[in-house]
């Protein structure tokens, strides 16, 4: 059991021991960067576990380490020290190729700026997520079409991102993240570039799919309205995680 300081002055205890229902286990996770002559401690001895199917919101000031933590959870970066496990797999020292396979199969990403491939249609953008899984062409098209239908964009499948609104683009990005049926969905400010109405639509979609599929949803957000919808809220500042 590891205690972490609560901003309210109390002490929240988080069980970091892996169980059958644990998706992520972070142990003494530290990440430091060199920035010129300065050493930046992005994460400091973070101990954290996230349960399977949990909806977690991460908030905090800019430069507090949210990006770094999300990169660690997504297997996009490696810790300076400590370990991070997805289920039974310890990924901090895993070879790049194996890590890429885990990302391809188990982790879905949704980005603030959608990060769609501008030259590909909505359908083709969704299909890119199935490419590394070696799904045959016909099946790939069928699954991508179903994913687009699930986010209400069946009629926009042949459109390029530039022909879609921001909300529609984010829905394509969600379809791309979910088409491979991942265990985890990591969302980076998924509504940061959207108006309130569209934000709520996107959150409804994300939460609906999480409930339906039981996937783990980790959302990084500055928006307290978004964070309040999560089951669990974490605050990350100066490399330290606190629970709210």
């Amino acid at each position: 059991m590891t205690g972490i300081a609560s901003p309210a002055g109390g002490v929240h205890r988080i069980d970091t021991r892996p169980t059958e229902d644990t998706m992520y286990t972070l142990t003494k996770l530290t990440k430091t960067y060199r920035q010129g002559d300065r050493t930046v401690h992005a994460l400091k001895n973070v101990d954290l576990s996230i349960g399977a199917g949990e909806h977690v919101a991460i908030q905090g000031p800019t430069g507090g380490g949210k990006t770094t933590l999300l990169q660690m959870l997504g297997g996009l970066d490696r810790p300076t020290s400590g370990t991070i496990s997805i289920g039974e797999d310890e990924i901090s020292k895993m070879p790049d190729a194996k890590l890429a396979k885990i990302r391809a199969k188990e982790i879905g990403f949704v980005f603030q700026n959608f990060n769609l491939i501008p030259t590909l249609t909505a359908q083709e953008n969704v299909e890119t997520a199935l490419e590394p899984l070696g799904v045959p062409g016909a099946q790939r098209a069928e699954r991508a079409a179903a994913a687009l239908a699930a986010v209400g964009l069946a009629d926009r499948a042949a459109h390029l991102p530039s022909e879609l609104s921001g909300g529609q683009q984010q829905r394509v990005a969600i379809a791309r993240a979910l088409v491979k049926e991942p265990e985890v969905l990591l969302a980076d400010e998924p509504t940061g570039a959207l108006d309130e109405e569209t934000r709520d639509e996107i959150l409804e979609i994300l939460e609906g799919i999480r409930r339906e599929r039981g996937l783990t949803l980790v959302v990084v957000t500055h928006d307290s309205a978004v964070a309040r919808r999560a089951e669990r809220r974490l605050h990350l500042a100066a490399g330290t995680v606190t629970e709210r």
């Binding site: 890429a100 990302r103 391809a104 890119t128 590394p132």
Partner: peptide, 16 residues
């Protein structure tokens, strides 16, 4: 950069 970073993030291998 962002395009290739995104592709790598969703599981595309370096070779691909």
């Amino acid at each position: 950069t962002r395009e290739f970073g995104t592709l790598k993030a969703i599981g595309w291998s370096n070779r691909r």
